[in-house]
């Protein structure tokens, strides 16, 4: 299981990009951290999510 924003999902083995494609997140408006470290945008395609990973997706909305 992979924990994404606190929710356990059965997506171990998928890449970050593959997971994001199943969501409504806009890749231009997010930051993804895996086990406390930023996942560079250039590595979404090659970063494999593993059993036990904890992922935070921060999604930005406009206004300031």
């Amino acid at each position: 299981m992979v924990k994404i924003n606190g929710e356990k999902l059965n997506i171990a083995g998928k890449t970050v990009a593959e997971y994001l494609a199943t969501t409504n997140y806009d890749p231009k408006r997010i930051a993804v951290e895996r086990n406390g470290d930023i996942v560079p945008k250039t590595q979404y395609d090659e970063t494999l999510l593993q059993d036990g990973d904890s992922v935070e997706v921060v999604s930005f909305v406009g206004g300031g």
Binding site: D26, K28, R29, I30, A31, E33, I38, P40, K41, V58, F60, V61, G62, G63, G64
Partner: peptide
């Protein structure tokens, strides 16, 4: 910033 893409750009850049 006010723009969502600019917010994400800076946040990613600083962390990376």
């Amino acid at each position: 910033f006010d723009d969502a893409e600019a917010k994400a750009m800076l946040t990613n850049l600083v962390l990376e």
